[in-house]
């Protein structure tokens, strides 16, 4: 069974990478923000958050952070995921589930192609 002491191996491996990353501009970080208020949680934001974290860890993506935010005021559109890529306009995805979250990582974060089908549509 895993215990906190097992984290040492991961820590030692990461320490080398972190030094490299800290030398880069902190503003180069891509942020993926998941709405995590009551509305988001009840709509399924927690599995979405965990899928995003899983994908980022598995693909070993550098300079990508997954964080939470509160209610954005569009509760009916939850789970909502916002992607902030440095130097680009914010992209807001709505009604996200774990499958869509995997697609966002593959298309948007890795390949730079925005998943327009998950964005809010006008009217």
């Amino acid at each position: 069974m895993k215990s906190i002491a097992d984290i040492k191996a991961i820590r030692d491996k990461m320490q080398a990478q972190i030094v490299l990353r800290d030398n880069q501009d902190a503003e180069q970080e891509t942020r993926i923000v998941v709405g995590m208020a009551t509305c988001g949680i009840s709509a399924g934001a927690r599995p979405v958050f965990n899928t995003l974290v899983d994908e980022v860890a598995q693909r070993n993506l550098k300079n990508v952070k997954v964080t939470r935010s509160g209610c954005l005021g569009m509760c009916a559109l939850e789970p909502i995921v916002e992607v902030f890529v440095p130097g680009q306009e914010k992209v807001t995805y709505v009604h996200i589930d774990p499958d869509k979250a995997r697609n966002i990582i593959a298309s948007h974060i890795v390949n730079g192609n925005i998943c327009t089908e998950y964005m809010i549509t006008k009217g």
């Binding site: 984290i7 040492k8 991961i10 974290v53 899983d54 860890a57 993506l61």
Partner: peptide, 15 residues
Amino acid sequence: ELDGISVTEPEITVF
């Protein structure tokens, strides 16, 4: 144990 490494690093979170 982490000695300064962020707990929000995806690999740590998954662990």
